[in-house]
Design a protein around this nucleic acid. Structure first.
Lengths: 326, 326
DNA sequence: TCGCGGCGGTGAATCGTTTCAATTCGAGGG
DNA sequence: CCCTCGAATTGAAACGATTCACCGCCGCGA
């Protein structure tokens, strides 16, 4: 009866019906473990993302899922909750399960592990972070350019004293934004940049930060704030609006980062840096399929690995009322 | 060498070291497919949730993941994007993969499929929806009680004409909220409830809805709005505040639903119904492990299935400024 | 009528792990 | 010194789907 599944065209109608009945009657369920064992491939793609709750992850995941399902495959997500150890153990789980490919937006450095997995046939794409090794495919966002865009826009609007509001500069994505902003500031004479640290990247941290700034003497306040993400920016704007001491954007202009759904529907719509999530997800999925093919055809033949694509998306500036008076 | 993995205590030190070296040298990776094929179980729990982007899902997922990982197992998520067909295909994927258990917050009706899966040994817990069959374990939230709480609170604050803002009453969770609200209204003489439909449950839909209400003659406006979720409520409040025609809560009080993170940090902090997400996630995971045990020990012995637990959480009212003047 | 070719169908080997039975080895007691 | 017992180790069977080789049957052409 094995032909029923993999070579249906070779079966006569009679036999097909006979088997069909048996399948229905017995409630037969094919065993994927056996199939994977025999064929060495599984129809699933693994996606590991930290910060599931983040506003960007779901959109990316949906885009990947769409491409993956169009290919007749499945995407299974694992969310390490920011734990590097958990992240690794999920990578190993996927490796043991012989998934067809892995997409990972990592917390820690996983390139060595990915290289090892590649050596026995599991393709991977690094997402949201540029790979250090040329053999590792990646799709990332140019956050330096994003930071530069934001700062340049503020400078263009006449800001002279810019505050960069952020937590943990250890996260590369955030450090890049600062570096981009700094480069824009450096090429603009007379403009200064102050780093204003906050405990976390949340609305509440933004509110607290804005309150602190509002309490400064007016002369010591920055005239613009570039927040490391939209949550912070939303908190900042809200606090300023409520306090009535500082007006946005007249006294202080505010730029966020990410263009989350809320950004456009806050009380003062937020100028922000849009990172193309859906496009990124689609690109990641496409690249992964390319990697799977490459590994399947060339990978086995020799030890030489060609440099793999490292795609980088450029974010764009979205101007709204928080920097430009209406 | 098989003993190396499953009976390490039965090996002498010498042999263990010999194998250890071989494993390291060859870069040996165990094959989970073979293991699953042989043992009939896999160390993964499947979680299928619609609306990954929803504010509640990540928190529930994190709670489940925590319990699951404490048990030495793995949780893999699949997000159908609200598609009943995709939901089913992921259920079948998990079935074919012989996962140990499945947690599902379904769009459609999947109880028959879950029963079928149970018949060959895959345990499941229905999440966020009460099971219709007594044989199906479930953990849900009593949205009727939630709706009642919200309406009762508004009535207590003196509201007489309540508007229920929502999209698609087909979603059971939403219909329940309305039913709860209706029961509170019915027992309060002189109070009326108007259903105000919106195209979707988003901030923007809330804004549009509020604008429409603000344009009504003052006498025809409701004096309170119960929104089916916090996004709608946030939009509504923001639009009222911006319009300056209607003041919250003096003219119109607003209650949301879910208590998302934003609810407490909006310009007018939102009164809302808090559903205990983390507790729900933990309860779901605990119940699933219980189901797995039950299926493993008793399930095989006879055809009789005892009624399974159907846990129901009660939501609670969180009072903030959108209903009570400060 | 006989032979050959092709198509429909069958059976066996295989994947890697687990599990259990069988075998070997060593030690200790009679 | 030999036998027995037990622990350590080895070997083989089984899980279920796939794949491929093989077999039998039918029809067509010579």
């Amino acid at each position: 009866m094995s032909n029923y599944f993999h070579k249906p065209r070779k079966l006569s109608d009679g036999t097909r019906q006979r088997i069909q009945q048996a399948v229905d009657a017995l409630g037969f369920v094919p065993n994927d473990a056996a199939r994977t064992l025999r064929t060495g491939v599984s129809p699933v793609i693994g996606y590991i993302a930290f910060e599931l709750a983040g506003a960007t992850t779901p959109e990316i995941a949906a885009a990947i899922e769409q491409r993956v399902s169009a290919e007749g495959m499945y995407m299974l997500m694992a969310n390490d909750t920011g734990s590097e150890q958990r992240e690794r153990s999920y990578l190993q789980l996927f490796a043991k399960q012989l998934v067809s490919g892995v997409i990972i937006a990592p917390v820690g450095n996983v390139e060595a592990e990915l290289a090892r997995m590649r050596s026995f046939g599991i393709a991977s794409v690094l997402s949201a972070r540029r790979a250090e090794s040329p053999e590792q495919a990646s799709v990332s966002i140019d956050h330096v350019a994003g930071g530069k865009l934001a700062a340049a826009h503020l400078i263009e609007q006449g800001s002279k004293r810019i505050g960069f509001v952020s937590s943990s500069l250890e996260l590369k994505q955030v450090a890049d934004r600062l570096n981009g902003a700094l480069s824009a500031v450096h090429s603009a004479p007379g403009v200064t940049l102050e780093v204003i640290p906050v405990p976390e990247r949340s609305v509440e941290a933004g509110i607290a930060c804005a309150d602190a700034i509002a309490r400064r003497p007016a002369a010591q306040r920055p005239d613009a704030l570039f927040c490391a993400n939209d949550l912070l920016a939303i908190g900042v704007v809200q606090a300023f609006v409520s306090s009535k001491v500082v007006s946005v954007p007249a006294d202080i202009a505010v730029v966020g980062y990410d263009d989350i759904e809320f950004a456009r529907s806050t009380i003062v719509p937020l100028t922000t840096i849009r990172t193309p999530h859906a496009e990124l997800g689609t690109a990641v999925a496409d690249l992964l399929f390319a990697e799977i093919d490459a590994l399947g055809s060339a990978g086995g033949r020799d030890g030489v690995v060609l440099p793999r694509p490292q795609i980088e998306f450029s974010p764009e500036l979205v101007v709204r009322a928080s920097t430009v008076p209406q």
